[in-house]
């Protein structure tokens, strides 16, 4: 059941990424390009995606997920160094190429050679992340 739900959710996600147009890197870079020919499409995508989730979070109160277990609790920790520095790095990469993880995965079958290279580099970055994150914590403690 959980595997079927995962496949179904992934299919909805993939379909949404495709038809929203945000696997097109020019649209993402257009959204980030406030000093150029600004493209607001991404705001519609984000707004559209947040709507069903506003309802979904309301439905979680005092209930259980369909397949049992518990709903994820909200992290009580404040925004920290890791969150900020990680998001800065992510934002820089996102601006450079116009791809974030979801669209990079969704466009695997039509993103060509460059798309595959991006995905491999992203996975390599994910391998390196725990080590780099730990280094970040050590420099924070030393400071």
């Amino acid at each position: 059941m959980r595997i079927f739900i995962s496949l179904f959710a992934g299919s909805l996600f993939g379909a949404g990424l495709l038809i929203s147009g945000i696997t097109d890197t020019t649209k993402v870079q257009g959204w980030l390009d406030v000093f150029g020919n600004w493209d607001p499409t991404l705001a519609f995508v984000m707004g559209g995606a947040i709507l069903p989730m506003l309802i979904a979070w309301r439905l979680t109160g005092n209930r259980q997920p369909l397949t049992g277990g518990q709903f994820p609790t909200m992290s009580q920790s404040d925004p920290d160094r890791r969150l900020i520095l990680g998001s800065v790095m992510f934002g820089m990469g996102w601006g450079l190429a116009g791809l974030c993880p979801g669209p990079a995965i969704a466009s695997l079958t039509y993103g060509g050679y460059g798309g595959v290279v991006f995905l491999i580099a992203m996975i390599a970055g994910m391998y390196a992340a725990p080590t780099l994150g730990a280094k970040l914590d050590r420099t924070a403690n030393a400071a």
């Binding site: 959710a9 909805l12 379909a15 995508v45 995606a49 997920p65 979801g102």
Partner: peptide
């Protein structure tokens, strides 16, 4: 393009809702 963006966004959010309410993730 904005309407496609909105429609695609709704599907993305629906996927997230299915994953949350179904699998609790």
């Amino acid at each position: 393009e904005y309407l496609w963006g909105l429609a695609g966004g709704l599907l993305i959010g629906l996927g997230a809702a299915v994953y949350l309410l179904g699998n609790g993730r």
